[in-house]
Structures are given as C-alpha cells and as structure tokens.
C-alpha cells in the first residue's frame, strides 16, 4: 500500500524533474565525495586553513643563530664588544648567518668583512641618517686604508682621538665649507672640551644662546670687517634667537 502510493507520488512528479533531479543528486554526491577525499586532513582544525601548514613553516631552517648563541663560545669578544659602541650590534650583522657554524664550528667558518667598502654601509655619510650617528666621508676619511687598520670592529673607538671635527661631523663640515661661514673654525662658536673627541656624548660642546653672540660680528656697531652684513639687533626679528631663522652652518639658506 505504502509502496504503491509512493510510486504514484513519484509518477506525479514530471519526468523532467525526476531525470534532472537524479543528475543533480549525482553531481552533489560527487562534490561531497570529492570533498571527503580531497580536502586536506588538517584543514579547519584551527581556522579556515591547513593546520599542517604551520608545521612546515615552523620546520624552516634557521640561518641566524642569534647573538646569545655566539656569546657562549666567544665570551671574550662578547665582553669586549659589550663595553664598546658596538654593544648593540649583533655578531651576525657583520659575520653573516651562522647557525651552521654553531652546529659545526670547525666546518663552517664565519666570514669577516675586511674591505673598506663594508663599514660605510652604516658609517658612510648620508644626510638621511639620524643626527648624531657617527658618519665619515668614505672618500676623504683616511683614504685607501681599510677601516680595521685603525678601528677594531669589536671596539671601534679609534686608538687616537680624531684630529678634526669633520671626521665625525662630516655633514656639518661640508655644509659649512660652501657657506659664507667657511672660514670660521668650529671653535669660533663652540667651546669644545678636550674629552669630547673620546666621549662625545658625555662632553658636549657648547652652543651660542644669545642674539648678542651673533651681534659680535653682525651688529651695526660690531668691531668686524666692513664686508660682513649688519643688522639692527633692536629691530631685526626681535624676540627670536638668530639660529631660529638662520642656520649658522649655512646662514644664507632659507
């Protein structure tokens, strides 16, 4: 009875729908089956991705061992460097990725850059570098000689203090050299303690702080050669210190 009524019900459905339905059912079953087989096992375990992918990414080989690994075996160099200006520079910056060396110290010897071109990567003068970062002009600074002949990379403070301000303050020296102030020595305006060349941050040079200081040359009544431009200190930009508008190392610049 039930079978017959079901058959009658099926017969009531148009032939087209029955045949199409069968095909669609086949397609859907195929898709569901394919999904069962083809979707990666770990897909969806932790989110909409293959959890196993994390494993293969984690399994990637390490190239840089990290400075801690170096310091275990090379405490002497680590100590020396730790006291120097290069204390923040990890060993592998210059010596390259050395995980292989950590695993087999004798088989993999770390390279050490000795050529003159290497150090200017950091210390060559470039105006975009932050102010105060030690920079030299690779062309003018003791030409030809490799940097390591004067500077120990693990303690780069030179054995004898720099003789000219330009050795470290290349940017300022070069700017000043093409300005009307070219002839003035740095000490004209800056009182520099002798120790500044050894401990630059601890002993900072002085800077002029008053209008009157510039007035010693540029005031109307200054006792200076007549070709030096004069201003009336009383009316010329009162309330401002000169360097707020004029850059002393290049005063004609705007």
């Amino acid at each position: 009875m039930a079978g017959r009524s079901a058959r009658r019900w099926v017969a009531a459905v148009p032939q087209q729908v029955r045949h199409l339905g069968a095909i669609f059912a086949l397609l859907v079953a195929g898709l569901v089956g394919a999904r069962q087989v083809l979707v990666p096992k770990t897909f969806g375990e932790r989110g909409h991705y293959r959890a196993a992918a994390v494993d293969s990414i984690v399994a990637q080989e390490i190239g840089y061992a990290g400075h801690a690994a170096c310091e275990t075996c090379h405490p002497d160099i680590a100590d020396k460097k730790g006291q120097s200006y290069h204390r923040g520079v990890a060993c592998e910056v210059c010596h390259g990725p050395q995980a292989a060396h950590v695993l087999a110290p004798m088989d993999h010897k770390p390279p050490a850059p000795r050529e003159r071109a290497y150090c200017p990567l950091c210390h060559g003068y470039n105006p975009s570098r932050p102010t105060g970062f030690p920079q030299i002009d690779p062309v003018l600074h003791n030409p030809v000689r490799p940097c390591i002949s004067c500077h120990d990379p693990h303690d780069p403070t030179p054995p004898h203090p720099p003789e000219s301000c330009a050795a470290c303050h290349g940017e300022i020296a070069r700017t000043k050299a093409i300005s009307y102030h070219a002839e003035l020595p740095c000490t004209q305006c800056h009182a520099v303690d002798r120790r500044h060349s050894v401990s630059p941050r601890q002993q900072r040079p002085s800077k002029p702080t008053t209008r009157e200081f510039c007035g010693r040359c540029h005031a109307q009544d200054a006792d200076s050669p007549p070709e030096i431009p004069r201003v009336d200190l009383a009316s010329h930009g009162p309330g401002y210190v000169c360097w707020q508008c004029h850059y002393p190392h290049h005063p004609e610049a705007r």
Partner: peptide
C-alpha cells in the same frame, strides 16, 4: 614576511630584528 615564525616559536627574534645594528 612571516615575522620569522620558525625563529619566534623557538624563542629567537626575527632575523631583521637580530641584525638591526641600532635597535
């Protein structure tokens, strides 16, 4: 960039951080 995920899970910092000379 993966933040050097293979290093980070082992307690190391990413390679770029390791070698940045100025921090």
């Amino acid at each position: 960039c993966t933040f050097c995920y293979h290093r980070v899970v082992r307690g190391l910092v990413p390679a770029c951080v390791e070698v940045c000379p100025t921090g």
